[in-house]
Write a protein that binds this DNA or RNA. Sequence first.
DNA 1: GATAGTGTTAGGGA
DNA 2: ATCCCTAACACTAT
Length: 262
Amino acid sequence: MPELPDVELCKEYFETTARDKRIQHVEVRDARVIKGISVPKLRQRLEKKRITSACRHGKHLLAHIEKDGFLVLHFGMTGFLQLVEKGEEQPRHTRVLFRFPAGGSLAYSCMRLLGKVSWTEDLHAYRAKERLGPDALGMDHAAFAEMLRESRGAVKPTLMDQSRIAGLGNIYTDEILFQSGVHPGVSSKKLSGNHIRKMHRALKRICTVAIRHKANPHDLPRGYLLPHRRKGAQCPRCGGNVKSASVGGRTAYFCSQCQKKL
DNA sequence: GATAGTGTTAGGGA
DNA sequence: ATCCCTAACACTAT
Ligand SMILES: [Zn+2]
């Protein structure tokens, strides 16, 4: 559930299920996901308060709470939100339950506990404290090109560096590099202007299309790597073998035929 | 039973 | 300091 397109969909889900509602009660079922604030303080900030809007920055969902500040939700690798109506069963790994006066509640589920629930009074300060770079979808070509020129090391870890560009992770950087014809291990410094342009366009296109298709890999247009993102699968563009390699400590999947090392 | 996995960060070595 | 790599976190699916 966790890269930019997924979090954007979470934001939309949050808006349709929680906006303008008042939080009656916050049930913290596993305090390990609460970060940067005590459980009583967080409850104090949220209970009886109205949710007025939501926004996303990178992989972070920020829900504006009437007057006070922002509830921050991060989903790690396995987090998601689900509206639970009265009497319905809640997700197995629900860590926090936000109850509304009408009886329904919004469950924050996070199996691996890699996500977090937090609080901030100031979006700017939060961004700085978390060292979050500009959001990937809001970055124009000039900023994107400059970011790559300033970076060292392989391009894939650079794209996943949340302090340089916020929102991309292991999966979508593979798709971006695949559609741009760039090998994940290439040094950012060696990218031509043409490559950078391709990557910038691919990033915008891929995130937008993924959001439109509910971030479901099997609903993506033909030619996308994601549905074939496993070792030994066939490249959807050339029919070659999809390969994997460890780049920056994560497993990258790519087609060595379509993606050149330059 | 062993292993990998959509993320992030602390700790260690160069 | 600063960059880069690895391990660790917790839990499930294969
Ligand atoms: Zn190919």
